[in-house]
């Protein structure tokens, strides 16, 4: 995966004399080779439809300016991400639109050098274009079968247990974690014996402050909510530009599950307790991180 980013350095032959004029030529040759692979279909996708090359060279490339310059994301606790083995990253969800999922993906890909396989809502997989883009990005439907399969394969799986309750909560409830579903993620982690990495994301709450909702129209469109922000729908498409809040993403100490028996995944009390433990950990880290960040926007804003 990460070798894709390295190709440019590896590809340059050890001819120091050419060093000045080569990069441009080489980049062009590389671009053409890339185009050729794309138009002839000579690339691999995994059984979930993940296309690492497209993800790195095209999709993430579009997100990187947002990650670096718009939200100025700072990460910490990257040492808690295992280098190779499977793990389940559990994060808080917010922001009206799931931009936090995209930024988490950039953070883990570029800084921890691991593609994250997010488990998404049904709604995503029912929409044309988006469903297949999500699959090419490495993500899949949030269901126990897929989660177990990815974790067994040693993948880094990411999940937002709050779901729509989290991402669509009103601005007044910001940084208050919602209920963590039925704890399916905890059961999956126990079954696979992989560590749970609590992840706190601060900054996503302010990108689209949801101050109102049009439930009737949302129902009509089959959406979980139809947000009203100070800028949307008043400014039209311009209202879709996220506000440039300052972001912090922290990966906490792994919560081990390998001392449980896989059978314990069927014990609801144990699963609920583990779910609560993860939720409280994330809430406390979110609170601490929010204090550390200070105001979301520079003072002149």
């Amino acid at each position: 995966m990460c070798d894709v980013t390295r190709t440019s350095e590896e590809g340059s032959p050890g001819v120091p004399g050419d060093a000045r004029e080569r990069p441009g030529e080489e980049r062009l040759a590389e671009l053409l080779a890339f185009l050729r692979r794309r138009v002839t279909g000579e690339y691999e996708v995994d059984e979930f439809g993940f296309d690492p090359e497209l993800n790195d060279k095209v999709l993430l490339e579009l997100l990187r300016p947002f990650y670096r310059h718009w939200f100025r994301v700072e990460t910490s606790g990257l040492q808690n991400i295992p280098a190779e083995s499977g793990a389940l990253v559990v994060a808080n969800h917010s922001g009206t639109l799931p931009v936090d999922a995209l930024m988490l993906q950039v953070a883990l890909h570029d800084e921890a050098h691991r593609p994250v396989r997010l488990l998404g809502a049904d709604l995503v997989y029912q929409l044309p274009v988006l469903a297949h883009l999500a699959r090419k990005n490495g993500h899949t439907l949030a269901c126990p079968e897929d989660a177990d399969r990815l974790l067994r394969k040693g993948e880094l799986v990411g999940v937002f247990p709050e779901g729509f309750k989290g991402v669509g909560k009103p601005f007044s409830d910001r940084y208050k974690l919602q209920r963590f579903g039925r704890g399916g993620f905890a059961a999956s982690a126990i079954r696979a014996g992989v560590p749970i990495i609590p992840c706190a994301i601060v900054g996503a709450e302010e990108i689209y402050p949801k101050v109102g909702d049009v439930p009737a129209l949302a129902r009509l469109l089959g959406l979980p909510y139809l947000p009203i922000t100070p800028f949307f729908p008043w400014l039209g498409p311009l209202g879709l530009v996220p506000l440039p809040s300052k972001w912090l993403i922290e990966f906490g100490e792994p919560i081990m599950t390998d001392h449980y028996d896989p059978i314990d995944a069927d014990d609801p009390m144990l699963v609920f307790n583990l779910t609560d433990q993860v939720r409280e950990t994330i809430q406390s880290r979110v609170d601490a991180l929010r204090l550390r960040r200070g105001p979301a926007f520079p003072s002149f804003f």
Binding site: T7, E25, L28, A29, E30, L32, A33, F34, R36, Y43
Partner: peptide, 20 residues
């Protein structure tokens, strides 16, 4: 499509590095 891509590479000065 492959022929088209090959023609395009012919114009490029460098040899394309194989995707690793």
């Amino acid at each position: 499509t492959a022929a088209l891509a090959d023609r395009l590479s012919d114009f490029a000065p460098g040899r394309p590095a194989p995707y690793k």
